[in-house]
Amino acid sequence: MIEFLQHLGENTRTSFTKLGRGTFFLLQTLSGILSVLTRPRLLLKQMYSVGVLSFLIITISGLFVGMVLGLQGYYILSDFGAEETLGVMVAASLVRELGPVVAALLFAGRAGSALTAEIGLMKATEQLSGMEMMAVDPIKRIITPRFLAGFLSMPLLAALFSAVGIIGGQMVGSGLLGVDEGAYWAQMQTKLDFQDDIINGVIKSIVFGFVASWIALFEGYDAIPTSEGVSRATTRTVVNSAFSILGLDFILTALMFGDN
């Protein structure tokens, strides 16, 4: 029993210490934003590797998710003779939920894991240490540009995901199942609210981008500098990002749509 309590105490202490380190790391990262903005080339390079290289996975996944939504939505709505509202269903699901959430999960899996592995290996091969000895702050030079790139790319990727998804839904709904194309778009335009649906979706993706980039970079920076350490850190990035994104999604949804 005592051993169990000791174990519990030790684990709690370790978790809180890590949270403290993570918060300190975030503050240091944020303090470098100004210096990165004066060197936009660093940011653009990272936006390419974090954002542009995620383009394909986001587009293809968005298309398939939209097509499945079109199919499933049609089966349910047609029972009530309401297949004309398919556009609303597909667009609302994507813009409010699936766009930000699935894009963020894919982002954590593709870009987040790559960031953790990259930073972890830079630490293991003494590149970060070497930079410090060259009087270059690795947080400002390496971490902050990657953080900003992730944070700025995420809403764009989520918007892309939703847009392609809506087209996918239309391809299946109108193209294959015969829903009126005009109704698909018109219903969507009437029912979807810019403030309630689109802005809230964008806010979600901004929050997810912030959290996913923070977790990925911190796990890499905090990794034990061995092959096993980096491998564990990469796994933790994907798992912790997924938990945080889904948990935060519930909280944000409750706050945003709770009083409807």
């Binding site: 091969t125 003494e126 070497g130 000895m133």
Partner: peptide, 9 residues
């Protein structure tokens, strides 16, 4: 000069 060289890869 680090043992590994610590060049930026």
């Amino acid at each position: 000069l680090f043992q590994s060289g610590a060049l930026l890869t």
